[in-house]
Amino acid sequence: METVFTPVQSLGGGALIGLASVLLMAFMGRIMGATGILAGLLQPADLSDWSWRAAVVAGMVSGPAVMLLVTGQFPAIQVPISTGMLVVGGFIVGIGVTLGSGCTSGHGVCGMARLSPRSIVATLIFMLTTGLTVFVIRHVLGG
């Protein structure tokens, strides 16, 4: 499934992701990592620890509605794989981000911006294994 190259929207969207990361650190002193925020939501330290995380996630979920209001349509979600593969992939992502303490937002953006050696290594590794996985599925197995 081919997709259109969108440098302007992607750069702008990326800048907003960065802005949110900077603001969460400035006001709450927290890393804007989807894995960390979600994990703390499932196992909160106390009510106030749970409530800020719930508020951030509620804000995230409202993002597409703002897109709908501004552009007249939800962001495109095209899934080029079967439901079975989606479940397998989701389960593996859950295992990986929990063991590795972070994902694209936590390690890839916040950790890299702090020049954390753990995040730099984690990001290089997952970018590599994601690329290898896509290559194997599309060009070796021919999916």
Binding site: I81, G89, G96, L99, S105, V121, G131, L132
Partner: peptide
Amino acid sequence: LVGGAAIFGVGWGIAGFCPGGALP
């Protein structure tokens, strides 16, 4: 850290969603 990151990449490469992309 190393193994978890490697596993995450395999899942991301299969599904195309990462947690930060999927939550919104």
